[in-house]
Design a protein around this nucleic acid. Sequence first.
DNA 1: TGCGAAGCTGCATTCATTGCAAGTCTGCAC
DNA 2: GTGCAGACTTGCAATGAATGCAGCTTCGCA
Lengths: 202, 202
Amino acid sequence: MTTLRDRKRLRTRRALVEAATELFETRGYDETTVADIAAAAEIGTRTFFSYFASKEEVLFPDADARVTAAVDAIATRAPGETPVEVLLRTMRDLGTAADEMVGRTAALRLRLTRTVPAVRGRALQIQLDAQREIARHLREAFPDDLDAVGAGALVGAFIGATAGALQVLLDEPGALDGDPAVLRERLQAAMDTALRPWTGGG
Amino acid sequence: MTTLRDRKRLRTRRALVEAATELFETRGYDETTVADIAAAAEIGTRTFFSYFASKEEVLFPDADARVTAAVDAIATRAPGETPVEVLLRTMRDLGTAADEMVGRTAALRLRLTRTVPAVRGRALQIQLDAQREIARHLREAFPDDLDAVGAGALVGAFIGATAGALQVLLDEPGALDGDPAVLRERLQAAMDTALRPWTGGG
DNA sequence: TGCGAAGCTGCATTCATTGCAAGTCTGCAC
DNA sequence: GTGCAGACTTGCAATGAATGCAGCTTCGCA
């Protein structure tokens, strides 16, 4: 059973994420201090750092879950599936999850990732760590088809292609302004473009 | 002609890089303060920030030159070369440049990039910026063969594959000790697999 | 009920980073 | 050679993230 302590901690954690989101949105990232966030969540400044290791972390509270989902997607492979097929499916799952990206929170995260260096740096680190983890599991799932380095290269190519495509797409001024549905459409198209070489399409 | 001012500034810049390298090597990154570096280079602490925007920057003093080289490599394409061929050549050039990486400085940079979060974050940002720049130029060089998103995906895949393979490769304990030729061999093999869809090989 | 671990805070400290306001030096025109 | 404008340096002060420490409070469990 979840103990009272756990529930309390979870509640505070959520409060921190919410408070931070709210403040970042209204005041801006640099203009919001950790003390502000802590105060808004009604805890001491010092305590903030017992929930998140740094100010940036609070923007990526679900990074672990994302990776877990990807790993699960790999684990549940169908018989006869090739590494590339598994990877394609995994990326599609992540893409679907990215649809939530249309939510206000995720849009903020996206915006800050693109404008605040510290946040971008953290986002990239998270991506790289995820990449490593996925590669490790993919390799374990296909010990005969892949060696460790090959798995790293393959996963790197998939994620790199996707990220590269999205980067260009989002670099366009006002890319985030239009209709969310349209944006989602374009994101999907960009992913298709990025992955086409593996899907066999011309 | 280069003015006295320019020469002086360059000399100080080099002194800073050297001082920082030396100190990071002996004392460690976190244990070295910006004030230490500035003092070792015989300038005021405040002045450090007129040469490098942050402590991490001093570890990547030639990032711009690297990108310029890559862009040049793209510009000097042979008639009939395909985007993929150009990109392969460009990556090879960068790889050659990375061979100088055997120098003590570059080894240090590599080690710190792998151990100090702040440095890793910065390195990734630099990589991403370079990627964007390369994609832009590649697209301009092949306006008929590539669209912007496609170019982003292509470059992302190549760099992602390289980075992904290197990441795993370097995770192996003692990876840097063995024969460099062997390392290059393994890297090449991994990338061949990952990029096969682009390079055409079955 | 009571003990020990876990969690919360305030305080003081270290450091990166930035704005500001003088100084100082260099490039260049006369 | 002189002198001025602009570019560089630098010290000072302030801000804010992050961390170690020490004392308290609260919760989980026997």
